[in-house]
Write a protein that binds this DNA or RNA. Sequence first.
DNA 1: ATGGTAGTTTGACTA
Length: 254
Amino acid sequence: MKIASWNINSLRKRQDRLLAWLEGTRPDVVCLQETKCTDEQFPVLALQSAGYHSSYHGEKSYNGVAILSKEKPQDVRASLCNEVIDRQARVIAAKIDNLRLYSIYAPNGQAVGSPAYEYKLNWYMRLRDCLSKEKNRELIVCGDFNVAPEDIDVHDPMLWRGAIMCSDRERAAFRQLCDVGLIDTLRLHRQEGGLFSWWDYRMLSFPKNRGLRIDAVLANKSLAEKCTAAGIEREMRKGKEPSDHAPVWAEFNL
DNA sequence: ATGGTAGTTTGACTA
């Protein structure tokens, strides 16, 4: 079973790219972030024709998350546990093939110390509390975490030291999230540096490979033991009008 | 020290 996660940065803008990629790679599940479309605008029929069910939670202009799956999703939820649906569309969860799957889009945080930064850290605590209740399930949490977990996930750790997506409190929040029993699948198979999932559109970041690894597929321990491969589709950052993120993926022998 | 780009939307915000 191949599970991918991609911050698409506007689903309407990149629908054709998405469909071509689905056709070429046929993942079983795709978690999307920054769909930037309302539920009414979601291209359910085009994705159905491509062989995928859609579970989605969007809003106008910003954020928006979705799960595409070959298998029919069950028990779809568009909020953190026991909470009213957020004003910001950042979480959707579904049960697929007996796995509990989350597609999450963590707040960016804007600048260390800003109100948005505090919102981000608080959001991480809420997500952790929610996921801690899923403990005994087979669990996958995919998405744009907006945190580079370690220095090895950063092209220039000294330049980024203490900056947004790399600050100590953000990294601690990410670790505490993983402490509920989640494992970063990429690092099960790839330990080297230079593996990034996001490159700023500005300053020729991509050609210079000045990126960060802020997207991930996290799995609980028993699933992580069945993870046979993981990677990042760097090619998807190339070409005409790419997203600023590349898809990340993991394969499981279930 | 600044601004560089992109998406949504037409002014300004988010990233």
